[in-house]
């Protein structure tokens, strides 16, 4: 029972951090960029594992964030050319980084105790979670919990400090420049921060499911809110709700916990969307 609570709470903390950053991605039409980021950081994982070993969280956060920023820089570089519009630049960048990551994993799988299946679609996620179920939770559970909590606090601090800057640069580049706010700088800052969130979430939910946590609760909130503050609030509610309900779904079906949480968030989104659409067309 205690284990279930640890899992749900840790997942909720992760989901809250993702939702917080995700709101800005949705507002800035950078949802797919978030998806690209979550794939592009893969080689960073390997570098960190190879050089510093598995337990060094700071090393792999920094390494992955570095690769995240590099991939964004590559996208911006490619976009300069007229044959590479936005989506082509994004697609080429993240697939190349991801491919590099998969190759590195295959080359060094032995040394790193990683199964690339696990890394990529999230079983690494519930390996620690599974371990919580099988062993006594106190040794491993709290570590992930504390990391998730620190992440959330860091996110809240970052957003609180940069609230005005992010708001203006998300709304209008021109307005930002007039107010001496550098939109480019905030573009990179936000996305670097997003990389960090993705990396830390990665351990719990896996590389590929992170996108659900980043985008789905925020999009749901976007449908029903008229101000950023409420959007953030609603996204939080959806995020936590998905974790709670998703956990029970996973125990019911004996499936991946992270995936089930993501599925529940998708279901909540679909219901909200349907309700909103019906209200508009009938009301």
């Amino acid at each position: 029972m205690a284990d279930s609570i640890w899992i749900i709470v840790t997942a909720s903390l992760i989901a809250l951090s993702c939702a917080l950053v995700g709101n800005y991605l949705v507002l800035r039409n950078q949802a797919m960029l978030g998806d690209a980021l979550s794939h592009a950081i893969l080689p960073g994982l390997l570098f960190a594992f190879l050089l510093f070993g598995m337990q060094n969280t700071i090393a792999y956060v920094l390494s992955c964030s570095l690769f995240g920023v590099l991939s964004i820089a590559l996208i911006d570089l490619l976009k300069q050319h007229r044959y590479f519009n936005d989506d082509v630049a994004i697609g080429l960048s993240f697939t190349s980084f991801f491919a590099l990551g998969v190759i590195l994993i295959s080359l060094f799988a032995g040394k790193v105790h990683l199964d690339y299946d696990h890394v990529l679609y999230g079983e690494i996620a519930y390996v620690p979670i599974d371990v919580w179920i099988l062993e006594s939770g106190s040794q491993i559970g709290p570590r992930s919990f504390w990391i998730a909590l620190i992440l959330l606090i860091t996110c809240l601090l970052f957003i609180a400090v940069s609230y005005r800057f992010l708001l203006i640069s998300s709304f209008s580049e021109e307005l930002a420049k007039m107010q001496k706010i550098n939109p480019r700088l905030w573009h990179y800052l936000l996305l670097s921060f997003c990389s960090i969130v993705v990396v830390v979430s990665f351990e719990s939910v896996g590389a590929i499911l992170v996108v659900s946590f980043l985008i789905i609760p925020s999009s749901t909130a976007y449908l029903i809110s008229k101000s950023l503050k409420y959007m953030i609030l609603y996204s939080f509610i959806v995020a936590v709700g998905s974790c709670v309900l998703g956990y029970f779904l996973a125990t019911l079906l004996n499936s991946s916990i992270a995936a089930s949480m993501a599925v529940v968030s998708g279901i909540i989104f679909t219901l909200t969307f349907t309700a909103s659409y019906l209200r508009k067309s009938l009301g």
């Binding site: 978030g34 499911l209 996973a250 993501a262 998708g266 679909t270």
Partner: peptide
């Protein structure tokens, strides 16, 4: 919702259903 968000939602929702089924 923009097309960008719609793509990300579709992608992640369907994929997570797939992973859920796969692990099941």
């Amino acid at each position: 919702l923009s097309r960008d968000a719609a793509l990300a939602i579709g992608l992640s929702f369907f994929f997570s259903i797939g992973i859920m089924l796969l692990t099941y």
